[in-house]
Design a protein around this nucleic acid. Structure first.
Lengths: 106, 106
DNA sequence: GACAATACCTCGTGTTACGATGTATAGCGT
DNA sequence: ACGCTATACATCGTAACACGAGGTATTGTC
């Protein structure tokens, strides 16, 4: 998928992935794989950004002798998801414009 | 609308705007306004980029004593639009993922 | 004992949208 | 005559962002 097209959606994808249950980096990537591919470097950048924006909180926990950083969504994070949903009508508007224009030349 | 969300769509919007009829900078902005807002600096950057990618050709013409640069879409430009349409199922997949996840907490 | 999988992180780079700014002409009101 | 808005083009610097390349460390598995 085109990189540019992903932008603005990746943040929300990550938030959606931790919405129903706290999760950690490696699992988020695997959970998102069927939906959208993202590299580790991308994910950790996003997680840092979302933490800075107070859209999630972090908690370190040990699991089978390995450290994991669990991410938990905040109210700001939930608000971000809802904002995304609200903006979707504009996105569909753009899509329809692209499909409509010059339809007779398809 | 969120800047990041626009990315990957603006190029295609501009191509769609000139698809059925050759157009020029100022008109493209006005035609796209109901659909998506973009500044002049953004548009001219995009037009240069699309020209470099051979997705459109340029022709300078005089109109009422003022110079205008008319942009014409090429087969590569049309292909870009079709590629965008093909990718749309993935975009909808992402949207559905975001809406689905943690639905019970809405 | 090599290798994949799990789990985290950093740095540099290229792409890109935008505001600020500049140039120039046409037309309109006062 | 003068200012203002609309038309029409263009450049520059900046900040955001996704990614590849690379690094560290542990736990299985063959």
């Amino acid at each position: 998928m085109d990189i540019q097209l992903k932008r603005g959606m990746l943040d929300v994808c990550v938030l959606a992935a931790i919405k129903s249950e706290d999760s950690y980096g490696y699992k988020i990537i695997k959970d998102l794989k069927p939906c959208v591919e993202l590299s580790e470097s991308t994910l950790y950048t996003i997680l840092k950004r979302l933490e800075g924006a107070e859209m999630l909180t972090v908690r370190t926990a040990e699991h089978d002798g390995r450290l994991r950083k669990y991410y938990h969504i905040t109210s700001k994070g939930l608000a971000r998801i809802n904002e995304f949903k609200r903006e979707w009508s504009e996105v569909m508007n753009i899509y329809q414009f692209v499909c409509k224009e010059g339809k007779e030349n398809d």
